[in-house]
Amino acid sequence: MKAKNQRLILALLALAAVIGAGLLAVSGLKQEAAFFYAPGDVAENGLPLGKAVRLGGMVADKSIRHDPDGVTIHFVVEDGKAKVPVTFKGIAPDLFKEKSGVVAEGEFHPDGTFVANNLLAKHDERYMPPELAGKMHKTDTLKP
């Protein structure tokens, strides 16, 4: 075998080994590397009590309620599998809306509610001009 081919095979084997090791490490990190828990994860694995966690999902439609004090809000986060009620006291980001993504930082209470001390809006991968979004919105509200 020519030295050149031997080096090529060695380099390709090394590359495959490195990528394999990387993928193994990444799949081992699957849970730990998640930025947030989804309501479905919580329903499946129980409440992560007594530690600061993030909860992410969609803000359920018509679920945002404001308390009379003006700074406390209640809403429901859902992911299609489960729902979690959330309480937050503070200023929500501009993009915090019903039917859009949110990541809440805080702690679970034993009764299953999530008390958030910070809210992040999660933008989705759809980008469109207002006219188009407006049309979509209209058809949404026209639906029975």
């Binding site: 990387g22 990444v26 930025f35 989804a38 992410g56 990541v103 999660k122 933008h123 991968e125």
Partner: peptide, 16 residues
């Protein structure tokens, strides 16, 4: 590939 797939493999703040 980890950067490229990071938003698909894990829950992330960055959009897909």
């Amino acid at each position: 590939p980890i950067i490229n797939r990071s938003v698909v493999w894990w829950n992330s703040l960055h959009q897909g």
